[in-house]
Design a protein around this nucleic acid. Structure first.
Lengths: 178, 178
DNA sequence: CTGAGCATGTAACCCGTTACATGATTTC
DNA sequence: GAAATCATGTAACGGGTTACATGCTCAG
């Protein structure tokens, strides 16, 4: 949680845009968790009335909450195994027994990845526009956020590149036809 | 599941090496799932005695199993949101309030990523050595596996590159000291 | 004779998703 | 007047992890 007071709804919006490439969660997970963290003393909340809908509940990190965060960071990077469903699908693409279908699969994957890339590029433009002195003179908070964005851009870019190579190569190969 | 008869234990070994960058599972998940899929008629099994330990149970896809696999692929790429814990950590690196600690974090991340890269490179060499005619003349099965490896190599490579850039930039920046 | 690797499993728990539920306001 | 957006939640379910349990063989 950021040190700025933020509602669960707003956190979800961040998950849909700039954080999308490395974290996401549903509101049904966010709301109970915010409450639990408040009970544990890691967050504190106050309400503010909203123009539409029910009152907004804004949460903010306590000193204890920041300490818990620092502990997590101090334990070092936690690199867990990730599950990339689409790569599992590529792995089994032989099951199609048809290079055209495999190629078609890779083309639609490429389209999806381009869309993801566009979402991140929009978030990046947003970041550069709102914050002055990008990136070196950013305040720490914005600076480290910007670093995560940069990796996202790189990763999606090589993924699209990889899709292109695969599409070209599958077309050229065709061991079946011979 | 591959069409070659394979034991749960062997699947786990694949998860630890060549599949590591996009899928993993514990034995406690693998064994019950293999049984369930056999009950559903997607797999069939036979036992073979092993030199050490209990009898090995080898599973193999049935025609129905392959059909289910093809259905999954035909539904198109499933690109779900991923959770990259270490990026969440980078996002919150400002909480250290100390560029040296942030930089140290990025250096240990770099080390871990280099190790992951090495694991994949070993799997890649293995693949090139065992299979002749890499990559175009590979049988379909090995060919699509090789494609997933290639993306893994690319992604880890840009990630290490990104770590390097971050480390250099954090050192140069230091807004705190001024 | 100890520890690592082979090989299979069960039980408890937690994290996260989907689906469901409510109700106000703004836009077309 | 319908649909989208704001804003908060609950309940059921499933997937996955950690911890626990067993027993055999080979290398040091």
């Amino acid at each position: 949680m950021l040190h700025e007071p933020t509602s669960g709804y707003d956190i979800k919006k961040q998950f849909n845009t700039s954080l999308r490439h490395f974290w996401a969660a549903e509101l049904s997970q966010i709301y109970p968790l915010l409450r639990r963290l408040e009970q544990e003393g890691l967050l504190e909340s106050h309400t503010s009335s909203s123009s539409k809908g029910p009152q907004r509940v804004l949460y903010k990190r306590t000193r204890k909450g920041t300490a818990a965060l620092v502990d997590w960071l101090a334990a070092g990077p936690s690199v867990a195994q990730e599950r990339r469903h689409y790569l599992a699908q590529v792995f089994f693409l032989e099951a199609f027994d048809d290079p055209d279908k495999a190629s078609e699969f890779m083309r639609s994957l490429r389209t999806i990845m381009l869309e993801e890339l566009a979402t991140l590029e929009a978030a990046d433009r947003d970041c550069r526009a709102h914050e002055s002195g990008y990136p070196d003179a950013l305040p720490d908070e914005g600076y480290y956020r910007a670093l995560t964005l940069r990796l996202g851009l790189k990763v999606f870019a090589v993924t699209v590149e990889w899709c292109d190579e695969c599409i070209a190569e599958i077309k050229r190969r065709r061991p079946h036809e011979l």
